[in-house]
């Protein structure tokens, strides 16, 4: 498998949370579609936006696997717990599951669909609220 990232231990302790701005709906074939508002760049603001159509939100359709991970990001489970659950459900090894889940969470983070709360190392998981947020 790929090389273990140096901060993997911290990432396993992290807790992914849905972006509160995300709206979800079902697509025509039953897939889950997530819609998140986009931050408009300077050149997309008025007066340019008065003249040209500007996309104000972005949608992402999730397959069944993606939906499973998305629904596990409930703000309570750590990444490690999500990985374990995914591994048990699909009969994968922890490491196989870790690669797949972490890559997916990275994609969700880049698309601003989730934020990941990383607990501060010295204070442990008790002060997760005080942790830094990664986006």
């Amino acid at each position: 498998m790929s090389q273990l990232p140096p901060n993997v231990s911290a990432l396993l302790d992290a807790v992914p949370i849905h972006n509160q701005q995300v709206k979800s709906r079902r697509g025509p074939s039953g897939e889950l579609i997530l819609t998140v508002p986009m931050e408009l760049r300077w050149f997309m603001r008025p007066p340019v936006s008065w003249l040209l159509p500007v996309r104000r939100e972005r949608s992402v359709a999730l397959d069944k696997l993606g939906e499973q991970v998305w629904s596990a990001c409930d703000g309570e489970q750590t990444v490690e717990a999500i990985v374990e659950e995914f591994a048990a459900h699909h009969r994968l090894s922890f490491h196989e599951s870790r690669l797949a889940v972490m890559q997916f969470l990275r994609d969700l983070t880049q698309r601003a669909l989730i934020v990941t709360v990383v607990p501060r190392k010295e204070s442990g998981s008790e002060n997760a609220d005080a942790g830094e947020e990664q986006e």
């Binding site: 498998m1 790929s2 090389q3 273990l4 090894s93 922890f94 490491h95």
Partner: peptide, 17 residues
């Protein structure tokens, strides 16, 4: 689990995590 591997006979590494 193996996280880094090599299949070369002459020189290589295997790393586990």
């Amino acid at each position: 689990e193996i996280m880094r591997h090599s299949v070369q006979e002459a020189r290589g590494q295997l790393a586990w995590c």
